[in-house]
């Protein structure tokens, strides 16, 4: 299957001493965290803890917000994405992103899924193949295969979000960042997207931001807890949820803190 990672060791993404400031205010403070292969890490924490900013630093989206300064390094397969030699365009091609609300473009389903491939001028056969694969992996293929030319905006919210996942998959990234992808979806659509995530984590590095502890429990292998810009706790999902090491984590997962 496409997207399978080579067996070489080492983490895919290694975050080292990452700090983010908005003018003088610290949003993230000295984060150190590795992301291995074929895993789904859920980043949880109360709103305003910096978890969205955190994933946005992983593919250099954070710099689109004026006034943010990023310090420290994020290594992608050993290469610092903040190196001056690295263009953010190249980083984002390899580390895909799915947003809170579905962000389909106002074209057809096919053109949405082919967006990233058109940018790098792939030939039509490859585009057809990759679009099909992407839609299959995102679990959308069966629903749209009969009419790939229909307007993407005519899909339901859950379908649109899976189309966004397919769009991210089509350029064969190794890492996909999911920034609360279910926050705008109803429970049924959420279930479909979660099933998609469970399927994808076999082959991709998924980093999921969520404020929903239940969702983290259902889909993730590992949980990282952020509070006020600091990494409080990180560990296997079952360990963190059943035997939290920090009082804050326990408060948060038992719902005493939102």
């Amino acid at each position: 299957m496409s997207g399978t990672l080579p067996d070489a060791g080492g983490p895919v993404i290694s975050v080292q001493h990452l700090s983010v400031k908005a003018r003088a205010r610290a949003i993230l403070d000295d984060i150190n965290l590795d992301f291995g292969r074929s895993s789904l890490t859920a980043v949880i924490g109360p709103s305003g803890c910096g978890k969205t900013t955190f994933v946005r630093t992983l593919n250099r989206m954070a710099e689109l917000t004026p006034g943010l300064t990023v310090e420290g390094s994020v290594l992608y397969l050993g290469q610092n994405i903040y190196d001056t030699q690295v263009n953010p365009v190249m980083v984002r091609r390899r580390i895909g992103m799915v947003f809170q609300r579905p962000t389909v473009f106002p074209t057809s389903v096919f053109e949405n899924a082919a967006f990233g491939l058109r940018l790098i001028h792939e030939d039509e056969d490859t585009i057809d193949k990759r679009v099909t694969e992407g839609l299959q992996q995102a679990g959308l293929w069966e629903e749209v295969k009969d009419d790939l030319d229909r307007a993407a905006l005519s899909l339901s919210g859950g379908q649109q979000q899976r189309l966004c996942i397919a769009r991210a998959l089509s350029v064969q990234p190794k890492v996909i960042l999911l920034d609360e992808p279910c926050s705008a979806l109803d429970p049924a659509a959420t279930q479909r997207v979660e099933a998609t995530m469970e399927f994808l984590k076999q082959n991709y590095v998924l980093i999921l931001v969520t404020h929903n502890v239940g969702q983290a429990a259902r889909v993730s292998d590992r949980i990282a807890v952020l509070s006020s810009g600091r990494l409080i706790e990180v560990g296997a999902t079952a360990d963190v949820l059943e035997r939290p090491q920090q009082a804050f984590t326990e408060q948060f997962i038992t719902g005493r803190f939102t």
Partner: peptide, 9 residues
Amino acid sequence: ESGLGMGAT
């Protein structure tokens, strides 16, 4: 942002 997130210039 999602356009740029796809690696578009």
